[in-house]
Design a protein around this nucleic acid. Structure first.
Length: 492
RNA sequence: GUCCCCAUCGUCUAGCCUGGCCUAGGACACCGCCCUUUCACGGCGGCAACACGGGUUCGAAUCCCGUUGGGGACACCA
């Protein structure tokens, strides 16, 4: 590779940053970093109706969150700007004029509505919906004259022959030009279409490698023809496979969350997201799977990109997030938990005031948490005055006639255990079980349910410690009372 | 319908280019055992794939052809 590596991510600001787009951006970023190249961000906002400022911001936000810094682009500038296509309109018009003058393009006066009808009719008849070149038949002089007053689009004339290129991920791909139709390059409103603007800009921005989604593969032969007609050098193209939903179709909203900000808001870590996305359609050696962004920039290569589409495996993302979450320092985990709980308003601010208590709680919950929102699944009991046990575990202890008595004995033991520390509490509880002649679980499980309302919780001695002597004793005795009341109600 | 692409466990994939080292490796999920007060973590083990049919070859997951299946694209959207 003699040419300087310059790649770009060129989203159109019509929505949020989709995970598929994020992965395309990631691959471009990694490729640039790996080869000491430049990563350009270009906003393709030539569709004035659908492009919004909010979407531009959402794209920035998503990329920054993932840590994908661009070297050139809107807001950071660069020598090849501007980076909004809406600010580059004269360049496209100039290039279109040239194609027109050289006979590689022609004016099209067809009515868009009419065109649409013709296309649908062709499709219905099972014919390829190609433009019929009606306006190519208009003599040049006449077309130029009409063009001065009549609204019209400009079409590129696809030459005969075939078009092929050596794709960086798929190898040689060939299209017969006869299957391509004369694409509009400049719309009636003088705005360029995607296939045209991309060519003009990729060339002007000296893009060396165009790495984009597979869905663009059929645009590539058209673009190559435009490059040639304009006398421009073509970049190397690489088409990365799509990301599919669980049902094997293109990932979309109906499959659930598709924007990276949704994942951020759900408490996923950017490092986990990056790692997961990198492994969707790319593998290092099939063995190693955990990579930081920095590590990826050292090992990424195009020839290890898969050719087949990948189904977005949500469970694996969740697992991976757990790997990263666990590795975080305690204070960071607490921060994330607090932030999340605040955001969803699950607890009053006062509940979050005691930092050291939260640290102990997060420690107790430990690696049961894969994301911040899991904290309350395991520690909600800590923040309520009275637990309402879940039905199934409650029925379980209700079935044990001796449970209330044991809960009372445990309450008595906790009431006077000294010091009120993990080991002493453990000794007291185990001693009680031994005295009763039962396994420790016979004492511990009912206590867990009485104290947390659930069958699953952090270690029971941590629970007792966190709750404090007073609350523990009260909950134990309350539960005993209720169990007895329920038992006598059942017999009468 | 037409065109393009793809095809290894349920899923992500390694192996394919440079056939033999593949009784096909790893990971997620699932199951079992161990650890253990529960769950999680961890450890050990298990289930589970070369789509099919023809070639080529001493030998094919690997090369060729076909079939089938899947995906994508067919706009004055990108």
């Amino acid at each position: 590779m003699t040419k300087a590596v310059r790649v770009r991510f060129a989203p159109s600001p019509t929505g949020y940053l989709h995970v598929g787009g994020a992965r395309t951006a990631l691959f471009n970023y990694l490729f640039a970093r790996r080869h000491g190249g430049v990563f350009v961000l270009r906003i393709e906002d030539t569709d004035r109706e659908r492009s919004t400022k909010e979407a531009v911001d959402a794209i920035f936000e998503g990329m920054r969150w993932l840590g994908l810094r661009w070297d050139e682009g809107p807001d950071v500038g660069g020598a090849h700007g501007p980076y909004f296509q809406s600010e580059r309109l004269p360049r496209y018009a100039e290039a279109a004029e040239r194609l027109l003058a050289e006979g590689n393009a022609y004016r099209c006066f067809c009515d868009p509505e009419d065109l649409k009808a013709r296309r649908e009719a062709a499709l219905a008849k099972g014919e390829p919906p190609k433009y019929d070149r009606k306006c190519l038949a208009i003599p040049a002089a006449q077309a130029a004259a009409r063009g001065a007053t009549e609204p019209h689009a400009i079409r590129f004339q696809i030459p005969d022959g075939e078009t092929s290129w050596d794709d960086a991920v798929r190898g040689v791909v060939t299209f017969q030009n006869a299957t391509l139709d004369d694409l509009v390059i400049l719309r009636t409103d003088r705005h360029p279409t995607y296939n045209f603007a991309a060519v003009v800009d990729d060339s002007a921005m000296e893009i060396s490698h165009v790495l984009r989604g597979d869905d663009h593969i059929s645009n590539t032969p058209r673009q190559i023809q435009v490059y040639r007609a304009l006398g421009l050098e073509t970049p190397i193209f690489g088409h990365v496979p799509m990301i599919l939903g669980p049902d094997g179709t293109r990932l979309s909203k109906r499959h659930g969350a598709t924007s990276v900000t949704e994942y951020r808001d759900a408490g996923f870590l950017p490092a986990a997201m990056v790692n997961f996305l990198a492994l969707l359609g790319w593998a290092f050696d099939g063995e190693r799977e955990i990579f930081t962004l920095e590590e990826l920039t050292q090992v990424f290569s195009l020839d290890r990109i898969s050719k087949n589409p990948a189904i977005f495996n949500h469970e694996k993302l969740e697992w991976m997030n757990g790997e990263y979450f666990r590795a975080l320092p305690l204070s960071t985990r607490v921060d994330l938990v607090v932030e999340h709980v605040r955001k969803i308003g699950a607890l009053p601010d006062s509940a979050l005031a005691d930092r050291s208590m939260l640290e102990r709680a997060v420690t107790a919950v430990g690696d049961r948490m894969k994301r911040p929102e899991h904290f309350l699944d395991y520690a909600a009991w800590l923040f309520v005055d009275r637990v309402e046990p879940e039905a199934a575990p409650w029925a379980e202890i209700l079935a044990k006639p001796l449970a209330p008595a044991r809960l009372r004995k445990l309450a008595d033991a906790i009431a006077k255990v000294e010091p009120f520390e993990h080991d002493a509490i453990e000794q007291a509880a185990r001693g009680l079980a031994t005295g009763e002649g039962v396994k420790a679980g016979e004492v511990i499980m009912p206590a867990r349910i009485a104290l947390t309302g659930k069958k699953v919780s952090p270690g029971i001695f941590d629970v007792i410690l966190l709750l404090g002597r007073e609350k523990t004793v009260k909950r134990l005795r309350d539960a005993a009372d209720r169990l007895e009341a329920a038992a006598s109600a059942a017999t009468t």
